[in-house]
Design a protein around this nucleic acid. Structure first.
Lengths: 157, 157
DNA sequence: TCTGTACCAAACACTTTGTTCTGTAACTGC
DNA sequence: GCAGTTACAGAACAAAGTGTTTGGTACAGA
C-alpha cells in the first residue's frame, strides 16, 4: 500500500478517535473529521464510503488486533478440560486491552461506547461459539449460554 | 391535556414505532415521522425538541409502564430472604414484556435495539441498586455485581 | 357562543452530505 | 533518475435534512 494512503488512513483513524473522546458519534461530522485529520474532503470519500463505513473499518482494525493472537481452542469436548484454555484466551484479550493499543479502552468507554461494545460482543460471541463446546448438562439452549458468557465478559470490560 | 395533543402525541409515537421496525434509528428522518404520523412539521417541533428528544420520551413512556407496578423490595438485608421477592419483581417485568404493550418487544429487538436496551438496563440497574442489598460474601465490588445482574437480565430479554 | 390554543402549510436560512471538476505533488517500476 | 501512475487538495456543486417563522384555520373547553 502506498505510503500516502497509509498516512492518510492513519490520520483519519486518529482524528476519528480523538473526536470520539470529545463528543457522541452521531454528532461528529465528516467536516470535523477531515479538519482534524487535515485531509481533503475528496480524500476522505476515496478511503471510506460514509462515516458508518469508517466506524466499521475502525472496529475491524481494533478487534482484529485484540483477537489476533487468541489461540484457537480445539478438541475441547469437555468443559472442565476446556476451562484452562478458555481462561488463557480470555487473559490474552485482557492483556491486549490493558496495553490499550490505539486507545481501545477510551473508545470502549466513550460516549458512544455501545456501538463498539456491540461489535466487541459479536467478535467474542463468534469466538466462543466456534471454539468452546459446552457440555454442562442443562435445559438451557447452548446459544443462550454462549450469549450469557460473552455478554458478561463485555459487561465486565 | 387537550384531546388534540393526546392524539398528535400518540400518532407520532405510533409512527416512530412503525418506522423503527423498518429501518435503523439513525436513518429515520423527521420528515418520515411526520409523514407517517400525518402531522405538520411545526406540530412535531411543538411536541419534541429533536428526534433524540422523541427517543428519550418514548423510552420513558415504555419503561415507566414496564416498571410501573414492580413492588419495591424493602427490608431485604439478606440475599436469601430477598431472593423470592426479587424473583417476583423480575416476573412482573417479564409479564409486562409478554403483554408486549406498545410493541415493546419488537422495539427492543429491532435494528436499533441497543439504544433501547441501554435505557432498559439503566432502569433495571437503578431498581436493583435501590431495592436489593446483596450480602454475598465476596471481594467483588457491589456495583460490579449489580451490573452483572442487570446486564444478564437484559441480555436474556 | 366565545376565547384560547393546537394545528397546518409554505417558505426560510442553515448545515451536512456526497460528487465532480482541475491542477499539483508524490510514489513505484524500470 | 526518468516516466507513468496514483493520491491528494481545493473549490464548487446539487441534494437532502434541520429547526424556525409566518399567517391563517379549526377545534376544544368553559
Amino acid at each position: 500500500m502506498d505510503r500516502r494512503q497509509q498516512k492518510t488512513r492513519e490520520a483519519i483513524f486518529s482524528a476519528f478517535s480523538t473526536l470520539l473522546s470529545k463528543k457522541n458519534y452521531s454528532k461528529i461530522t465528516v467536516q470535523e473529521i477531515i479538519d482534524t485529520a487535515n485531509v481533503g474532503r475528496t480524500t476522505f470519500y476515496a478511503h471510506f464510503e460514509t462515516k458508518d463505513d469508517l466506524l466499521r473499518e475502525m472496529c475491524i482494525l481494533l478487534f482484529d488486533h485484540v483477537f489476533s493472537d487468541v489461540l484457537p481452542i480445539e478438541n475441547t469436548h469437555d468443559f472442565s478440560e476446556a476451562e484452562d484454555k478458555t481462561g488463557t484466551s480470555i487473559t490474552h484479550i485482557l492483556y491486549h486491552l490493558r496495553d490499550n493499543h490505539r486507545n481501545i479502552l477510551e473508545i470502549l468507554s466513550c460516549d458512544s461506547g455501545e456501538i463498539f461494545l456491540k461489535f466487541f460482543r459479536q467478535y467474542l460471541n463468534d469466538l466462543i461459539a466456534k471454539y468452546i463446546v459446552i457440555t454442562i448438562p442443562s435445559e438451557i439452549p447452548e446459544d443462550f449460554l454462549i450469549n450469557h458468557i460473552s455478554g458478561s465478559f463485555v459487561n465486565m470490560v
